[in-house]
Amino acid sequence: MTSLVSNFDEFMDGLWKQNPIFVMVLGMCPTLAVTVSAINSISMGLATTFVLVASCLLVSLLRHAIPKEVRIASYIVIIATFVTVVDYAIQAISLELYEALGAYIKLIVANCILLGRAEAHAAKTPPVAASLNACGMGLGFTLGLLAIGAVREIFGSGMLFGVSLFGPHFQPWVIMVLPPGGFFVLAGWLILFAAIKARNSSQLSSGERALEGGKS
C-alpha cells in the first residue's frame, strides 16, 4: 500500500510539483523553438517522454553495472540511442511532422532534463519507481509545451490542433509564431504560476499566524 502511494508520488512529482518547464525551468531550447502549434508541442513532448522513460529504465536497470567514473558517458550513449530510435520512428510516422520539428528531435539528446533525471534519480532508484518518475516528468514536460503551444497557435494562427476557431477573417498575431512569441507566452505562464504560488504561501502563512495567535 505504501509503495503504491509513493509510486503515485513519484509520478505526480514531475507532472506538477516539480514540473520541468514551469517549476524547474529546464529544457528551454525545445520549449521556445517548437511550440508554434499544439500538435508540434505534443509530438515533441511525447518524443521526449519516450526517450526519458526508456533511458531512465535502462539506466536504472544497469545502475549497479555502471562504474561511477564512466557514468556520464554511459548515460549520454543510452540517451543518444533512444533519441535515434525516436528520430527514425517519427520519420516513419510522418515526414511533415519530422520537417516541422526539424533539428530539435536530435537535440533532445542535449536536453538537460534527460541527463538530469538519469543522474539525479534513475541512477539511485529501482526500475519501477524510476520509470514512473520519468513518465511523470515527461508528461509534465508535454503539458508545459502544450500550454505554450496552444496559446501560440490560438493567437498566431487562430487555430487549435489545426481547427480554425475564429473563421477566415482572423488576423494572425505574427509575432506569436516567431521566437519572441515563445518568450512572451512562457513568461506569461511563469508569472501565473508565480502568482498562484505567492497566493498559496501567503494563505499558508496567515493560517499559521492564526494558529500561533490561538496558542498564545
Binding site: Q171, W173, V174, I175, M176, L178, P180
Partner: peptide, 8 residues
C-alpha cells in the same frame, strides 16, 4: 514594437 511584430 509588439504590434509592429504582431501585425506588420
Amino acid at each position: 514594437a509588439f504590434v509592429q511584430g504582431a501585425f506588420p
